[in-house]
Amino acid sequence: MPAERVHAFDRLRVMATVGVVLLHGGAGIVGARRGEQTGFFTSLNAANVYDSAGRFAVGCFFMISAALLLAPERPFDVVRQTRKVLVPLVVWSFVYIAYAMWASTSGRSTPVNGSIGDPDVAAPVQILRDALAAPVAYHLWFVYVLVGLYLVVPLLRPLTARPTAERRGLLLYGVSILLGLELLARFVPQVWPGTPRLYVSFLDVFPSGFVGVFLLGFLLYHHPPRVPAAVPALVATCGFAWIVVAVWRQQSAEVPSLWAYENLNLPVLLFSAGVFTFVTRPAARLRPATRAVGVVSALSYRIYLVHALVLHVVRTEGPTGDLYQDSPVVGIPVAVAVTLVVSFAIAWLLGRVRPLRSVW
């Protein structure tokens, strides 16, 4: 019997899909002009605002997976679940490699940022080595982390299968340890530059990071905080504002840093947790999602895989590329909108090819 569909997650997937494209749209300007001194009301900081607005997305994607896959009432097959994301990862890695090789030989474009850079088509072994060394496109790191989380789900499900009262305390303890150490190592030096360095080797090998975010998603959904909806909305707003201001101030620092954009730093965690809690609060779960939202939600993974290639073309070629570079305030939303429409169309069309639906 199929598990009941969670309509709040459909809405959140659509929001997160838009968020990912938005942050990558803004990042193309912020990264290229990193360190440039700028006022708050400038085109560069507008790109920062767009980028910051999408930073909740990755954390929410992980938390949705946790809330579903760690639920004891839902079946889980680690091989099947891993294959669902791993096979498309391999297929799309070849797509991005092929595009990079075409861009390199034709000179008509540039490759999407990734591990293979500007490949030499006469050196296929080196291309393979580079492809194995890191994701071939910058956004595919997410899938590697997702696969890693899937592999530890069988170890986490015995915890989430405990009696409800006991489970909540254990989850709070687990999240506190896993995310607490991560935040301690990352955040304290930002607010106290002279702090002594902690025992880095220990923190590097301690299993934390995204496993903590994963457990946090299960905790927030299955044990939602009993607070008014305004509280998570305020937390999300504060996280977003913190990211914007921190990146803006760092842009003109002597040593510019984009630390506030990092998924495991406190501002982004607050933003992600606030959005997740607000959208999935018990009162919101009762409202069914529209059919259109359900369709986009079902295609969200495929849209994620293809969007980096579409966005790369949109922001580097033709009139949209000129608008993106010359007027980011308008150009970024235009690039994002075009990318979303084209990526959805590609994802939908690929889904019509039924024999190959599972490979991309």
Rank of each mutant, 00 (worst) to 15 (best):
M1D: 11
P2K: 11
V6I: 14
A8G: 13
D10S: 02
V18F: 13
H24C: 12
A27C: 05
I29L: 06
T38M: 08
T38D: 12
T42N: 07
T42K: 06
L44V: 10
L44D: 09
D51A: 14
G54F: 05
F56M: 04
V58R: 00
F61N: 00
F61Q: 00
F61G: 00
F62Y: 06
F62D: 00
M63S: 05
M63N: 06
L69Q: 00
L69H: 00
D77E: 10
V78G: 07
V79N: 01
Q81M: 10
V85H: 00
L86Y: 01
L86N: 00
I97V: 15
Y99D: 04
M101F: 01
P111H: 11
V112W: 04
N113W: 06
N113A: 14
G114Y: 12
G114E: 11
G117R: 14
V121Q: 05
V125T: 12
D130T: 10
A133G: 10
W141N: 03
L146I: 04
G148D: 00
Y150S: 02
V153H: 00
R157K: 12
P158F: 08
P163S: 07
A165L: 12
A165M: 08
E166N: 02
V175E: 01
S176P: 01
L181E: 03
L183S: 04
L184R: 03
A185F: 11
R186C: 05
R197M: 13
R197Q: 15
Y199H: 13
L203T: 13
V205T: 15
G209C: 04
F210W: 08
V213M: 09
F218V: 02
P224D: 00
P225I: 06
R226T: 10
R226F: 02
P228Y: 03
A229R: 11
A230D: 11
V231E: 07
P232V: 12
A233T: 04
V235F: 09
T237R: 02
A241G: 15
Q251N: 15
Q251T: 11
S252W: 09
A253N: 14
V255I: 13
V255P: 03
V255R: 13
W259D: 08
A260S: 12
A260Y: 08
L264K: 06
L266T: 06
S272H: 11
F278S: 01
F278K: 02
P282A: 09
A283I: 02
A284C: 05
P288Y: 10
A289I: 07
T290M: 12
A292P: 01
V293K: 03
S300P: 07
Y301G: 01
Y301E: 01
Y304W: 07
V306I: 15
H307C: 08
H307S: 10
L309F: 06
H312V: 08
H312S: 09
V314Y: 03
R315T: 15
E317H: 15
G318W: 14
G318Q: 12
Y324C: 14
D326E: 14
P328M: 10
G331V: 14
G331S: 10
I332T: 10
P333G: 14
A335N: 13
V338E: 10
T339D: 10
V341T: 15
S343E: 04
F344G: 03
F344W: 15
I346L: 14
W348M: 05
L350D: 09
V353W: 15
R357H: 15
R357G: 08
S358H: 12
